[in-house]
């Protein structure tokens, strides 16, 4: 187990008109490989903001975010995109599969972006499909798939580049209990294989899957549970 991502005294403020919204107060946390880290908190507490910082889609207002030894503070938008492509697999609440592309093309996409040769890419897509038990739906368009199936394709897309970090924002919120369980088991397996898996949720029922839990409330991170119903 190693620390692959660090949030060091990082904060995030959003300006909207004259007012400033503090989405995340200066906070610190580490993300370790081989572990499922659950980021728990009520709606509007700053979970997605924290995940976006680690996911290199936004810059911290203050403090630092370090991904695999590189600080994102002074990186260009294109360099940030490269880090996302190379180091991070994303899983979203709404699955975010590209609607015009088939399941296997969606999984192929990050490999295309990376410039992986066709033959090798096809092999890796096949393996990824097997891993999430979706080989039989390779040719289907996303709209032909159930929510749970779409999320498994999304997981395959996230893991096909073999990134050290998997970031999941409410991956089970759009799924029934059964599909949610399948998805969580898959994510746990990925952690067991050595990835750092961070899962944002407000669903306390996911706690049993966690190796680590980070609580977020009112833009603040704490290691201990907050005594408040979520």
């Amino acid at each position: 187990m190693a620390v692959i991502a660090q949030v060091i005294n990082a904060s995030k403020e959003f300006k909207s008109g004259d007012s400033v919204i503090v989405a995340l107060k200066p906070s610190s946390m580490d993300l370790e490989t081989g572990k499922v880290t659950l980021i728990l908190g009520p709606s509007g507490s700053g979970k997605t903001t924290l995940l976006s910082l680690i996911g290199c889609v936004i810059y911290p207002t203050s403090g630092e975010v370090i991904i695999d030894g590189v600080s994102t503070r002074d990186l260009s938008a294109n360099k940030m995109a490269k880090i996302r492509l190379n180091k991070i697999g994303f899983v979203f609440q709404q699955f975010n599969l590209l609607a015009p592309l088939s399941a296997e093309q969606n999984i192929m996409l990050p490999l295309t972006l990376l410039g992986v040769p066709d033959g090798e890419a096809r092999e890796r897509v096949k393996t990824a499909l097997q891993k999430v038990n979706m080989s039989h739906r390779a040719k289907s368009l996303p709209k032909m798939l159930s929510g749970g199936e779409q999320q498994r394709i999304a997981i395959a897309r996230a893991l096909v580049t073999d990134p050290p970090i998997m970031l999941c924002d409410e991956p089970t919120a759009s799924l029934d209990t059964n599909s949610a369980h399948v998805v969580m088991e898959e994510l746990k397996l990925l952690a067991a294989e050595g990835k750092a898996v961070a899962i944002v949720t407000h669903d306390m029922r996911l706690k049993p899957y966690a190796d680590e839990i980070v609580y977020v409330e009112g833009g603040q991170i704490s290691k201990t549970e907050i005594n408040q119903p979520i």
Partner: peptide, 14 residues
């Protein structure tokens, strides 16, 4: 298709 283009950007397309 803005969602799809957003996803492309999100996962690291330049």
């Amino acid at each position: 298709r803005i969602r799809d283009y957003g996803t492309l950007k999100g996962i690291g397309a330049s």
